[in-house]
Design a protein around this nucleic acid. Structure first.
Length: 301
DNA sequence: CGCCAGGACGATG
DNA sequence: CATCGTCATGGC
């Protein structure tokens, strides 16, 4: 007859151990997750949660480290680190950005934002959905797609059920009404069109990832529902091309107001200007301008 | 209720 | 090549 103590010893542990990920200051987890790069995170008092890499990651910030725990099968700390941009040399980056008079003023409100390295497929679809849309509804659509078409991930009792973002073949086989049920609206054929190209092997996103910026950009621009802005977002947030500079309405207003005395400048000119002005930090400059102008807007309203 | 949303697309000048 | 109306639907 085993004692209660012995029983406790052989009982499998209910939770995976925590993994510590170095994220030295100024790295700022919440700012990074809320900077409009990713749309499938859930922020809770216990930390930020996402279905990622075949499991569920729960991450919280604790000083110079991130404490990560997998609620599903054990995942890869290395891939999570890369995803979160925790290894980015932010001190060096922000010191350089602060030489710009505008960014120097913005940085106190946006410092710590890291550029992420998301999954190209998911990121590309997220920004196709982002077109003529608002952020809460982008999140809603991504969640509904996952709920309807994604694989379930087993999590311990007490945690909300989780599903992966659906693989390309899942969306390729979906009917348009089913996709519209995920509030995709008029973008449904775009999403399914890209899904079919990937599932059919005509578009190899892994191969695109090894292309230089200009060629990767041209490849993305040929896809349905992908214009200049969406392509730049995928290039910056998933493919790691730091010279990308997505110009949305917010960034356009910010640049026109803060650098061009308020006169209107075409988006193409702004991109060229940014690349010339910020060089290898172009993508970071954009991310701080976007976060900065939105923070100021929220402050006024 | 009316306006808006991290734009893309096709049709016109 | 620049401009312009249109697009589906939930937030706010």
């Amino acid at each position: 007859m085993p004692s209660p103590h012995a029983h406790a010893r052989i009982r499998p542990r209910r939770t995976n151990p925590e993994v510590l990920i170095a994220a030295p200051p100024p790295y700022h987890l919440e700012r990074t997750l809320q900077s409009g790069q990713a749309f499938r995170w859930t922020l809770t008092p216990a930390g930020a949660r996402i279905a990622f890499d075949g499991t569920v990651a729960l991450v919280r910030s604790d000083g110079p480290v991130l404490c990560a725990r997998w609620l599903g099968p054990p995942g890869s700390a290395e891939r999570l680190t890369r995803y979160l941009g925790a290894g980015e040399p932010l001190t060096e980056i922000e010191d350089a950005l602060a030489r710009d008079r505008v960014l120097r003023r913005i940085l106190p409100h946006t410092s710590g934002i890291a550029l992420m390295r998301q999954d190209p497929w998911e990121c590309l679809i997220a920004f196709v959905i982002s077109a003529f849309n608002n952020i809460p509804k982008i999140q809603l659509t991504m969640d509904r797609l996952s709920l309807r078409f994604g694989d379930a991930i087993a999590v311990p009792a007490g945690h909300p059920a989780a599903r992966m973002f659906p693989a390309p073949d899942r969306l390729a086989d979906a009917t348009l009404p089913a996709l519209r049920g995920c509030v995709l609206g008029y973008r449904a054929p775009y999403v399914r069109g890209i899904a079919r190209l990937v599932a059919g092997g005509e578009l190899d996103l892994g191969a695109v990832a090894s292309l230089p910026y200009a060629e990767a950009r041209a490849t993305l621009l040929a896809l349905p529902g992908v214009g200049e802005k969406v392509a730049e977002c995928a290039l910056l947030f998933a493919f790691g091309h730091r010279e990308a500079f997505p110009v949305d309405v917010w960034v356009q207003r910010a640049v026109e107001r803060w650098y061009f005395s308020g006169r209107s400048v075409p988006a193409r000119s702004i991109r060229a200007w940014a690349r010339d002005r910020f060089g290898p930090l172009t993508g970071y400059a954009q991310q701080h301008l976007f976060a900065g102008v939105r923070a100021l807007s929220r402050l006024r309203n």
